[in-house]
């Protein structure tokens, strides 16, 4: 198991920004879905950038505040910490100067893991 912060409970919701190009049609369900490519680590890094919903709430912020400004075209999805941990991932806090709720999902994400991660998420802010 990679680095993991046990103070983040399994039911904690991790919010992931999704660029429009990672949203594709799903004829099987007659809906839109998020491509497995949205569950990649950032280039040259060992983590996938997310935001802790609880941390946003603790600041009195709306979750949609992370998809405003430069990110206004992005959608927002939620996965649970427990779900990502079930695929050999860890979750750590990674506060940024401009975003204290920032966190990382740590661990290798090969194509198999990415597809598994993409099987269970909820839309928070749907496709624009």
């Amino acid at each position: 198991m990679p680095n993991d912060d046990p103070s983040i409970p399994a039911e904690a919701r991790l919010l992931r920004r999704v660029i429009p190009d990672w949203i594709v049609p799903d004829e099987n369900t007659k809906t839109k879905r998020v491509s497995s490519q949205a569950f990649c680590n950032s280039t040259g890094e060992n983590g996938m950038s997310v935001f802790l919903e609880d941390a946003l709430f603790a600041e009195g912020r709306d979750v949609a505040s992370v998809v405003t400004g430069d990110y206004a075209s992005h959608s927002l999805i939620a996965v649970t910490a427990g779900w990502v941990r079930s695929w050999q991932q860890g979750v750590i806090r990674d506060p940024l100067p401009e975003e204290s709720s920032h966190a990382q999902v740590i661990g290798e994400k090969n194509s198999n893991i990415r597809r598994k991660l993409a099987r269970q998420y909820e839309w928070v802010v749907g496709p624009r």
């Binding site: 190009d21 990672w22 594709v24 049609p25 799903d26 004829e27 099987n28 369900t29 879905r33 491509s35 497995s36 490519q37 990649c40 680590n41 950032s42 280039t43």
Partner: peptide, 13 residues
């Protein structure tokens, strides 16, 4: 869809 490693992915659902 684009991949973060500079590639592309073709997908059908």
């Amino acid at each position: 869809v684009p991949t973060v490693s500079g590639g592309v992915q073709a997908e059908w659902h």
